[in-house]
Computed example of a mutant assay.
Amino acid sequence: MTQKKPDLATALIHHAYEPPAGFVAPQPAVHKASTVIFPNTAALRARNWKSKAGYTYGLHGTPTSFMLEERIATLEGGLQTLLVPSGLAAIALVDMALLKSGDEVLIPDNAYGPGKELARNELAGWGVTHRFYDAMDPGSLTAAIGPATKLVWLEAPGSVTMEFPDLPALLRVARERGVTTALDNTWGAGVAFDAFDLADGQGVDICMQALTKYPSGGGDVLMGSVTTRDEALHLKLKFTHMRMGWGVGANDAEALLRSLPSLPLRYAAHDATARTLAQWWATQPQVVQVLHPALPGSPGHAHWKAVCTQAAGLFSVVFDERFTAKQVDAFVDALRLFKLGYSWAGPVSLVVPYDLSSMREHPAWKGTLVRFSIGLESADALITDFEQALAASGLA
């Protein structure tokens, strides 16, 4: 008697075969899910989305996202990590979880621009006030902290202008006044210094990164992370994370998991080439300042040296004000290997010109600033590109 063929739709959905356990490979598996299946109602009612003891819903975590969270926590030197869709979302998560109407947040004047705009607009609309302080002067932070201050942002080095602050001094000011600190550690990437242990066994309360940059390393993933060491603080952030519905795609998490093992090697390579190029620019008569924390004479070099072992592949140069913005733009446009584009830490070198007067209330230099993100090309090839662009634009 021939066996009757089963109903195909049902059989394909409820197929009985389960692959054997024990498969191990260099790269972790990718788990995609919105719905998570429970074995029974007792398990459904017993599982708690707040921990990694089990799975409840795809937005609250899968084996893939849990694994990435744990590895980022190790990278940062923390205990818990939350993943969000971008670095800016990581800043927003911290602000939204810790600030309410009537509170105040203090932000370095040289911090990441979109984070400042978030304070000027959304936070202000919600009744959260903000003030900008001079990150290079701990006294400026001391003067700014008041009874309403609930959060102090730190960034090392400053965005675009690359000043490296005295992080231990700033942390002491905040800690003595009982104010929570959050560091944008995208530049350090968990490699250049230990943000949770900066001085006397003390460090920041929260460390966030744009994983878009060094942890990804490919210029093709948008993601952010927020890492802590304190369980109560982590849960406060996690509740907001849950209520906002923030999640990351499994394929993006997979890309990060593939890139992380090479992060220390890539960071060191970017660092070495960037220092070579920064030193080359320091000999060029067209520029009045090379902004690279590891370069003597760059603002905050001593502070960098006190806490860092490495530096990111990122630096800026300030052209002499005798050159117009149009002339500097012509130099940027003449570059061949450097591509014009935002972000950094990928394999391709990038360049962006900036108008200092539009970035700071009191810029320390006059002239046009150009930021270079150094990729993985050879230093000799990139220097040759600089030389031909200077000549082609008439700046040589």
Rank of each mutant, 00 (worst) to 15 (best):
P6I: 13
D7Q: 11
T10S: 07
T10N: 04
H15S: 12
E18Q: 11
E18M: 15
P20G: 13
F23L: 06
P26S: 07
A29K: 10
A29S: 13
A29R: 08
I37K: 00
F38A: 01
N40I: 00
T41H: 01
R45S: 00
A46D: 03
K50V: 02
G54W: 00
Y55R: 02
T56M: 14
H60N: 11
H60M: 12
T64K: 09
L68V: 14
E70K: 07
E70C: 04
A73D: 00
L79W: 03
T81E: 01
T81C: 14
S86Y: 06
P108M: 04
A111M: 11
A111Q: 09
A119G: 09
E122I: 11
A124V: 02
V128H: 00
F132K: 10
F132W: 12
Y133T: 01
D134H: 13
M136R: 14
M136G: 15
P138C: 04
G139N: 12
G139Y: 08
S140K: 07
T142C: 03
A143I: 14
A144H: 05
A144V: 05
K150S: 00
L151I: 00
E155R: 05
A156H: 02
A156I: 14
G158C: 06
V160I: 08
V160W: 04
E163G: 13
F164R: 02
P168W: 05
A169T: 15
R172Q: 15
V173L: 15
R175A: 06
T181H: 07
T181M: 09
A182S: 05
L183G: 04
N185Y: 09
W187I: 06
V191I: 11
A192E: 14
A192P: 08
A199R: 04
G203L: 14
V204R: 00
M208E: 02
M208Q: 14
P215M: 02
S216D: 08
G217A: 03
G217K: 12
G219L: 06
G219P: 12
L233V: 12
K236P: 02
T240D: 03
R243H: 11
R243I: 05
G247N: 12
A250E: 08
D252F: 07
A253S: 13
A253Q: 07
L256R: 07
L256A: 06
S259T: 06
S259R: 09
S262G: 05
L263P: 04
L265A: 07
A268M: 12
A269C: 12
T273A: 10
A278P: 03
W280L: 14
Q286S: 09
V288P: 09
V288T: 09
V288R: 08
L291N: 13
A294H: 01
L295M: 04
G297S: 02
H303W: 02
K305N: 04
C308W: 10
T309W: 06
T309S: 08
Q310S: 15
A311G: 08
D320W: 06
K326W: 05
D329M: 13
A330N: 03
V332L: 08
F338R: 08
K339E: 13
A345C: 15
V348S: 11
D355G: 15
L356G: 14
S357D: 08
S358D: 10
M359Q: 03
A364Y: 05
A364W: 02
W365Y: 07
K366S: 02
T368A: 13
R371W: 01
S373Q: 04
S373I: 01
S378L: 03
S378N: 12
D380N: 12
A381R: 14
I383H: 03
D385V: 10
D385I: 07
L390S: 10
L390N: 07
L390K: 13
S393Y: 15
